[in-house]
Amino acid sequence: MPLDKSLQSGSTAMLLLKLLSEQDMYGYQMTETLARRSDRTFLLKAGTLYPLLHQLETQGLVVSYEQAAEGARVRKYYHITKDGQRALTDKQQEWNRFTHAVNHVLEGGECYAKA
């Protein structure tokens, strides 16, 4: 069953920052890594990926640089900044609170997570 896209939309930036916190990557590499590590659940299209990456760059959370690839090709790599690392930590905490709360509701229990 395909995943409801609205579930993914809020977390895509966090997933990209997480990938970049491990190593610098270029756009295509990110989509492939994300697809592989999510068991092909997150199949990110370029239409979603690049505007988001450029937005993160504008916010100073990532920076880009160019590196020669095979042949005469040049690839644009993205690198997470210190601000990006901080934003990732915040987003991860936010995400943990959110999933914790959702799970509690779904399991019928009560949630005491701080707002």
């Binding site: 370029a46 239409g47 505007p51």
Partner: peptide, 17 residues
């Protein structure tokens, strides 16, 4: 085809650039 809708992509880039 994998890239998605060019018109929608253009609009999103327009908002960023």
């Amino acid at each position: 085809r994998q890239m998605g809708d060019p018109v929608a992509l253009g609009k999103q880039f327009d908002a960023v650039y």
